[in-house]
Amino acid sequence: MAGLWVVLGVLVAGSAAGLLLRRREGRVKTTGKAPGTVPDLPAAVTGVLDPERVTLVQISTTFCAPCRHARAVLTTLADGTDGLRHVDLDVTQRPEVAQQLGVLRTPTTLALAPDGRELLRVGGVPKAGSLLDALRPHLPNAGMRPGG
């Protein structure tokens, strides 16, 4: 009988953990950093920043299946939105880049201002609508281009 309770306990704990992880998947998180604080970014990131647009830096690894889905979402969003650019940064051979950025999982998307300030980050595959809503205050004309 005790074994049955152990099995039920493990199933409940596992289900709760799974629901919590699913709920957090793709959620936009704003940074708690003070406005105007420009972090010391790795060269791999500063080299891809756009001086006039918000850059979505997707941190990926080679064998990450959700990374392909995130890439499709972010590419479509960036192609259809003024003032937005998407860059995919594979950290498979450069784990120190992920470590410097505080990235613990892939895909993770960082939205960076032209000066390198982190505006927000998303762990997992982002939801395009939520991400665009969170980015609106940082975009020049806060909307999708016609046909985008």
Rank of each mutant, 00 (worst) to 15 (best):
L119F: 10
V103F: 07
A128F: 06
P66I: 01
D82W: 09
A113C: 10
G102P: 07
G116P: 10
A43C: 02
L132K: 07
A70I: 09
C67H: 03
T81N: 08
Q99I: 06
L135P: 06
A128C: 04
R145S: 09
T61C: 01
P107N: 08
V38D: 10
L101Q: 01
S60K: 11
E96K: 10
Q58T: 11
V73K: 06
F63N: 14
P51D: 11
A98P: 10
L131R: 04
V125T: 15
V91H: 03
V54N: 00
D133Q: 14
G102R: 07
E52D: 15
A98W: 10
R145Q: 12
T46W: 00
E52T: 13
T106A: 14
P140D: 07
T106C: 04
V73E: 03
L56E: 11
G129N: 13
T92H: 05
D79L: 11
V38H: 09
A43L: 14
Q58F: 05
V122N: 04
H69S: 12
T106F: 04
P51M: 06
D50L: 00
L139V: 05
T106N: 08
C64Q: 09
P137A: 05
S60A: 15
A78M: 11
R85N: 12
V97W: 00
L104W: 15
G124D: 06
A70K: 09
K127G: 14
P66Y: 01
R136N: 03
A78K: 13
D40N: 14
G123K: 10
R145I: 08
H69A: 13
S130P: 13
L56T: 10
T106R: 03
A43S: 14
Q100W: 04
R136T: 15
D82S: 15
H69K: 13
T61F: 00
S130Q: 14
V38T: 11
S60D: 14
T109L: 02
V103S: 03
P126G: 09
P107S: 07
T46H: 01
L135H: 06
P146V: 03
V45M: 05
P140R: 08
V91E: 02
V97L: 01
L56F: 08
H69L: 12
R136S: 04
R53Y: 00
H69W: 09
D50V: 00
P39I: 01
G124E: 05
N141S: 14
P137H: 06
V38Y: 07
L139I: 07
R68T: 15
T109A: 01
D40Q: 15
T92P: 02
G83W: 06
E118G: 05
T109S: 01
G80I: 01
A113Q: 12
T61D: 08
A111G: 04
P95G: 06
L84C: 07
E96F: 07
V122M: 05
V54A: 00
D79I: 00
H86P: 11
R121H: 15
K127L: 12
H69Y: 09
Q99H: 13
L41A: 02
A111T: 01
G47A: 13
V103Q: 06
L120Q: 00
V48Q: 10
G116S: 09
Q93N: 12
T76N: 14
L49P: 10
G123V: 13
R94L: 04
D79E: 15
